[in-house]
Write a protein that binds this DNA or RNA. Structure first.
Length: 1082
RNA sequence: GGGCGAUUAGCUCAGUUGGUUAGAGCGCCACGCUUACAACGUGGAUGUCGGGGGUUCGAGUCCCUCAUCGCCCACCA
């Protein structure tokens, strides 16, 4: 397939038609297979895995940035001759996706997931996924992303599922997976756990209640009660202890010491406040220490307290969690409803743990009958009333409380300790830290190394289970086993494991397909958990086989079997065979990040040892946003090391975030998001890409004020915090209403029917203007190249401007290649922008106009022009692929043979053209300096014309006073002064005398005189010269001041001083010539 | 509470290892539709580089400090 639609060069439109180019070239690239990589291609590999976008919704501007940057690198590397694989895919995003589908299900059909059931719901989510994935892929293609679509993956597809099972199994067999407790955000309305992301905090007026718990049998002189304080009084029904610090004196001293350190470091302003704090602390210590120490001693003696309202007795314990400096110094312990209390429970296994809540948020049977079935809210009222009636409520303070609410149901969250799967992180985290510390993985910019290392260094175990239906189901079957005699069980558990093993073998599984684990003690006291994990592909048949087999077992010791139904277990007595028979498949799924962590190797075929894995792992770089350094990057590193024994990528580039005009992150829920397709439609994909690259600087974060575009009259309305969440907006100009993205989710039916106003940003005009400029320069070149004869060219044929352009081109090539290699996208874009616009277009192309008018000069100019355009297009292709491909094909028509000294046929597509190499032989600073003189004189002539108000087309005459060498340089440029400034040179040289009525401009080593006899205006000229004189005089003064400073002359480096001296001489001369001109006027 | 970052023209941002009188794009002003381009051309105006202190011959750049804004993490009996 060649150019699908070759146009006539003379009929090219004056404006670049981005939508036509996009529609034409993407299908062309795909059909040519340019983006498809194969493993047995011998060229060096370059591989990038896409950060898989969530299938929750459409891509936003941040994705556009992320993928543009990846595409820029991939396209450059492809041109550099690498075997490039950009692995595309999407993420199943467990919670977010299920939540979206559930919400729609409820809105549209008034059904909950329980009405539908697990299988049906999962089916619905797959439907949703297919729809949105299509949309995401289409967005990526419209952006121009050169992904290898034949390899498209999804984190929940069969290949990824296999990698997930394998990894989980490895971890399990390696004893890195265990069951523990974790405080989850429990949504009592939806009866599900919610992620931290889906929780919003709302400050509400609340209270701080102080309760007294009576001490049972206090000795004389001892306190008769302890006081505790709480914001959630209803949880007292689940209290199992009250804690006091084991060494209050030491604890006080520690806090004091910390405070003193702070005071030393503090500013004067803070000092007073801190010192006051220290005084209060000291007073408190004096007042409370004896009491607290008494309580501590009582705790050691095993004193019990009466838990009011329940008739239960709970111990007073000594634990460091109790902070003597806070409240009463004593803290109630509710292990099942508070994470810190849970840890206290873990340290003090003698105390009880008591869950008081049903999944619907009502109180369960473990509380006294009168509170059973009450909601937490009602229970609070009842508890407080009863405590007050018992005169045990000693104080109620008002207090603002940051109350967590579920974003999905808008109801308050109940913290709730649930059984969870955990991955042990100590060794894994250490391995990932080492990889970054020793430089095997480099994070750019380097400051993000700290984020990464700090987070990993906590080595917090990773809770990987989620109470969801959408995701990788945990490949474990388990049964809870209650036993009374722990010692006996320890022996018998070997027997249980053996028995289970036998069952597995009999069911036809190989020993390396399953792993049996027995864990004691972590679940509700002495109850143990027997589990089996498998990575077999036949997971679903697994238990049918085993259960059949275990019917043959009748003998064996008896155990209590707990069915693992959430939250509380029911007990039954049975024998060992029944223990196995009672095994149930875990109904949780894995955290989405578990599958994302495997992305770099799972997408390449792991655990299969595929040729792709051998060729492309480790991948070459990772490009992502900073908010997932910990969640994703760190976990990919540790998973890569764990599964592959090698880091997944040697470099990670963290790119900026795009914020709105108020410095806020863009998000759908704020209504300030931007759909890249809106921008692509209005400005074109190339403009979007170039604009984004131009903004990707080292300094993080880009502020981007956005506007609504009225769909009726196209006028722009600035987005404000107010109008961005209106369901309909009235246009400022035409006063007709239009809808927005916000209308779709929050508006009435009428709002949703309104034509939608696109959200765009003026920031992309830069890219659009640039693309258009380039298009037109190309158009000019094409018109003048068509029919040109390829001619031999030798360096000797080249004129100053050719040598200048080639020198600049080589320098820019070098700059761009280096900048992109170091992720300095903005530098590359700025360098190309400046070169293309200010040098190539404004000077070189302008100058060729005069040369094309002269027959003998044509061939060389054509040749250099074609070569320069060819090179520039290749340099720009990674950023603006569509435009450059369009022009490339036209250029192939106009100049089918190209090259400077040696001519060749260019590549059929710019996608696979060679990346330019900076040819050092052309870099010539002398030529550049000489050319700069020409530019300076040109500027002076143009400047005088403007200042004298001489009409642009009015011919003028000028002369230049300069040395002989400059004459030799600039005299040949006379035609350019004519064509570019309508100025005719009358004289060059050292003895040039200015005409009678003249406007002069002193320059470095030169004087430009423009004959203005026809336009002479003494006053205007005097004003101009006086201004110039003042400027120069000021400059001379500042240089004088510097040079007369003894310290500067003696201490600054000699070259700096010399520079200043010669500058002074130079500026003085200029000043003299201005003063002379002024004198002449008078 | 801990950490990170930002503060430069009306707006959005560059500014390399400290070294001429601090730059770009948009916007603004003036003139121009000149046969590549008005999405353009030519020229112009615009800054106490957030405040204060310090190091230095010399600070937008390095150090300290204050202020404001933003982000991440932790915690809130």
């Amino acid at each position: 397939m060649s150019n699908p639609n070759p146009p006539s060069l003379s009929e090219l439109p004056a404006q670049y038609d981005h939508s036509a180019a996009q529609a034409k070239w993407y299908p062309y690239w795909e059909s040519q297979g340019y983006f498809h990589a194969v493993a047995d291609d011998p060229r060096p590999p370059y591989c990038v895995v896409i950060p898989p976008p969530n299938v929750t919704g459409a891509l936003h501007l941040g994705h556009a940035l992320n993928n543009t940057l990846q595409d820029i690198l991939c396209r450059m590397k492809r041109m550099q001759g690498y075997n490039v694989l950009w692995m595309p895919g999407t993420d199943h995003a467990g919670i977010a996706t299920q939540a979206v589908v559930e919400r729609r299900l409820f809105e549209e059909e008034k059904l909950t997931r329980h009405d539908l059931g697990r299988e049906k719901l999962v089916e619905r989510i797959w439907d949703w996924k297919k729809q949105y994935e299509q949309r995401i892929l289409s967005q990526l293609k419209q952006l121009g992303a050169s992904c290898d679509w034949e390899r498209l993956r999804f984190t929940l597809d069969d290949q990824c599922a296999r990698a997930v099972r394998e990894t989980f199994f490895k971890l399990f067999a390696d004893n890195k997976i265990y069951r523990g407790k974790r405080l989850v955000n429990w949504d009592t309305f939806l009866q599900t756990a919610v992620s931290d992301d889906e929780v919003f905090h709302e400050a509400t007026k609340g209270h701080f209640w102080h309760f007294n718990y009576p001490v049972i049998d206090p000795r004389p002189g001892e306190p008769t009660h302890v006081t505790i304080a709480t914001t959630r009084p209803e949880t007292m029904l689940g209290d199992t202890a009250v804690a006091v610090h084991p060494d209050p004196a030491k604890a006080f001293d520690k806090v004091s010491a910390e405070l003193r350190e702070k005071i030393i470091a503090a500013s004067a302003k803070e000092k007073g406040e801190l010192e006051e704090q220290a005084t209060l602390l000291l007073e408190r210590r004096t007042k409370m220490l004896p009491q607290l120490e008494k309580l501590r001693d009582m705790a050691k003696r095993g004193v019990m307290l009466e838990l009011p309202l329940t008739g239960r007795k709970i111990p007073l314990i000594a634990d460091e969690w109790a902070k003597p400096e806070l409240g009463s110094g004593c803290v109630k312990i509710t292990p099942a409803h508070d994470e810190n209390d849970y840890q206290v429970w873990q340290r003090n296994q003698s105390i009880d743990i008591r869950n008081i809540m049903n999944t619907d948020g009502s109180l369960n049977d473990s509380v006294p009958e009168k509170y059973r079935g009450l909601t937490m809210k009602k229970a609070r009222e009842a508890v407080v009333a009863d405590m007050e009636a018992a005169e045990l409520c000693v104080e109620i303070e008002d207090r603002d409380i940051d109350l967590a609410h579920s974003d999905r149901s808008k109801t308050p969250i109940e913290p709730y300790l649930a059984d969870q799967w955990f991955v042990k992180m100590d060794e894994l985290a250490q391995s990932a830290m080492d990889a970054v510390s020793d430089g095997r993985v480099k994070i750019i910019p380097e400051r993000y190394k700290k984020t990464y290392l700090d987070w990993l260094s906590e080595k917090r175990d990773w809770p990987v289970g989620r109470q969801l239906w959408w995701g990788h189901r945990i490949p474990v079957w388990h049964a809870l086993v209650a036993i009374d005699d722990v010692d006996n069980w320890k022996n018998d558990k070997q027997e249980a494991a053996k028995l289970l093993e036998k069952a597995c073998i009999a069911a036809g599984f190989n020993p390396d397909e399953y792993f049996i684990q027995v864990q004691e003690g972590l679940n509700f006291g002495s109850k143990s958990d027997i589990r089996i994990c498998t990575h077999s592909n036949r997971v679903d048949q697994f238990f049918d086989g085993i259960k059949k087999f275990t019917t043959d077992f009748n003998a064996g010791p008896t155990y209590g079997v707990l069915l693992p139904s959430f939250p509380a277990a029911t007990e039954a007595t049975n024998n060992l065979a029944d223990v196995i028979r009672s095994l149930e498949k875990d109904d949780e799924v894995l955290d989405t990040w578990f599958s994302s962590a495997l992305w770099p190797h799972s997408t390449l075929g792991w655990p299969e040892q595929t040729p792709e894995l051998a060729k492309f792992y480790p991948t070459s770089t990772l490009i992502t946003s900073r908010d997932i350094i910990t969640l994703w990057v760190a976990r990919m590193v540790l998973a890569g090391l764990y599964n592959m024994g090698e880091v997944p990528f040697p470099e990670v580039f963290i790119h900026p975030k795009i914020l709105d005009g108020f410095g806020e992150t863009m998000s759908k829920s704020k209504g300030n998001g931007v759909d890249p397709l809106d921008v692509i439609e209005k400005f074109g994909a190339d403009s979007l890409r170039f604009g984004l690259a131009y903004l990707t600087t080292e300094t993080q974060d880009v502020r981007m004020p956005v506007e609504f575009e009225c769909p009726h009259c196209q006028s722009l309305i600035a987005q404000t915090k107010k109008n961005r969440t209106l369901p309909r907006i009235e246009c400022d100009k035409c006063h007709r209403p239009f809808g927005t993205q916000w209308s779709q989710s929050h508006g009435t039916e009428d709002d949703q029917k309104l034509p939608r106003g696109a959200v765009v940003s003026e920031r992309f005009e830069l890219g659009r203007n640039f693309c258009n400029k380039l298009w037109n320069a190309s158009r000019f070149a094409l018109m003048n190249l068509e029919g040109g004869e390829p001619s031999a060219s030798a360096p000797g044929d080249l004129l100053l401007e050719d040598r200048w352009l080639l020198s600049r081109l080589a320098t820019v090539t070098d700059e761009v290649t280096k900048a992109l290699g170091e992720y300095r996208f903005a530098d590359a874009a700025r360098s190309l922008y400046g070169f293309a616009w200010d040098e190539f277009c404004s000077f070189y192309v302008e100058m060729t106009k005069a040369r094309f008018a002269v027959l003998e000069q044509r061939a060389v100019a054509q040749r250099v022009l074609a070569h320069a355009l060819d090179t520039l297009l290749r340099l720009l292709h990674p950023m603006t692929p569509f435009l450059t491909e369009e022009v490339w094909h036209l250029l192939n028509q106009a100049a089918p043979n190209r090259g400077l000294l040696k001519q060749d046929r260019p590549a059929e597509s710019i996608c696979v053209a060679e990346w330019p190499e900076a040819d050092a032989q052309w870099i010539d600073k002398t030529i550049e300096a000489q050319f700069a003189k020409f530019q300076t004189v040109m500027g002076a002539v143009r400047n005088i014309r403007q200042e004298k108000n001489i009409p642009p087309r009015e011919p003028i005459q000028f002369s230049v006073k300069c040395d002989a060498e400059t004459v030799k340089l600039l005299k040949p440029m006379e035609p350019y002064f004519l064509s570019m400034a309508h100025a005719a040179a009358t004289a060059w040289g050292a003895d040039v005398t200015p005409p009678e009525r003249v406007a002069s401009k002193p320059l470095e080593g030169m004087e430009v005189h423009v004959d203005i006899s026809a336009f002479f205006d003494v006053t205007a000229e005097r004003t101009r010269l006086e201004k110039e004189r003042d400027n120069l005089a000021k400059f001379v003064d500042s240089l004088n001041a510097k040079l007369s400073n003894e310290n500067f002359v003696s201490r600054a480096p000699a070259n700096v001083v010399d520079e200043q001296r010669s500058k002074l001489t130079e500026v003085r001369e200029q000043l003299e010539s201005v003063e002379a001109a002024l004198a002449k006027l008078a």
